[in-house]
Write a protein that binds this DNA or RNA. Structure first.
Lengths: 161, 161
DNA sequence: CCTTGACCTAAAGCTAGGTTTAGAAATTAG
DNA sequence: CTAATTTCTAAACCTAGCTTTAGGTCAAGG
């Protein structure tokens, strides 16, 4: 069974093939490589060649994005895998716990916001610094700088007309 | 009680004063004006002057942003208020229901994702097209285009070494 | 009057996560 | 061999939601 392509230069997947297998755009894969989420070697002509395991690695990236992890966070998770291979079922269990935690936290934030809102419906607190929505519960995942505080209008409730 | 400032040219709030009362940056208020979330008249020197009701209007904007409404959506909500005044307690009750619905929906999406994840922990399904995370449950609020499908690797499970 | 400080506009810059474009080189199909 | 794909790089562009910068003007205090 020793065929002539058995030594030297493993074939690998071209970027287009990887794109087809994952459903990602070619440009996205190049971008992910630039961000250190996958790596590729180059063939004689300078074209990228990927390993088959990168299909799973990119699938992992796509799932992590469903959980709204940023590229930087995904890179961290992938770095927690020994020597850059795709996650095995055992790795997957471990990483899933992190997804779980992130997800639970985001759900908790939204539920708190919902409860605060429930407390506010009908209380007319739109003008109250003591409103439950005041100065707490940052945007779903504190991305961005965001405003600094809410509701400066402490008196003069009805001055709109 | 007829004082001399009683006719002509109501004073209004300068943009800096409004910024202080709301906690927003001056540049943010100008931006919101450009986006039609507030409006101002100009004094003799061409400077913006706002009504006191705009404090509450902007507070409303800030709360809506906590709920991850976009500028366009917030503009819609504000347009649903008669003649561009700040929301009254009655308006607030009505609009709160919309926040509620948006929030419930987002929580539901995350919970589905969490359930799918639970079903996946330990099942080694990272390579399975039949994985619960496959091809469903778009990112928390389907912003952005997003990838088209997941997990192209239907066979060759352990080819990473 | 003179000096701060607040304000003005327009345009450019920023983050995130990519996509699009342009022009050139490599690979594949016939 | 030739034509059609695919791939390459670098840089520009895109959305969202603002901020920063540059160069001036307005308003208020002493």
């Amino acid at each position: 069974m020793s065929e002539n392509r058995s030594l030297r230069q493993k074939p690998g997947l071209a970027i287009g093939a990887l794109a087809e297998r994952t459903g990602l755009a070619v440009s996205a894969i190049r971008y992910y490589e630039s961000q250190g989420l996958v790596s590729a070697w180059r063939n004689a002509g300078g074209q990228r060649r990927f390993e088959r395991a990168d299909i799973r690695r990119l699938s992992f990236v796509m799932i992590a994005q469903k959980f709204d992890f940023t590229i930087a966070e995904i890179r961290e998770l992938l770095n927690s895998l020994p020597d850059g291979r795709a996650p095995t079922p055992a790795d997957w269990r471990r990483i899933s716990e992190q997804f779980r935690a992130a997800l639970d936290q985001r759900i908790a934030v939204l539920e708190t916001l919902r409860d605060d809102l429930d407390g506010c419906i009908g209380c007319g607190c739109l003008s109250l610094p003591k409103c439950a929505l005041y100065n707490k519960g940052d945007r779903a995942a504190q991305k961005g700088t965001g405003p600094r505080y809410l509701m400066g209008d402490s008196s003069e409730i009805d001055d709109q007309g």
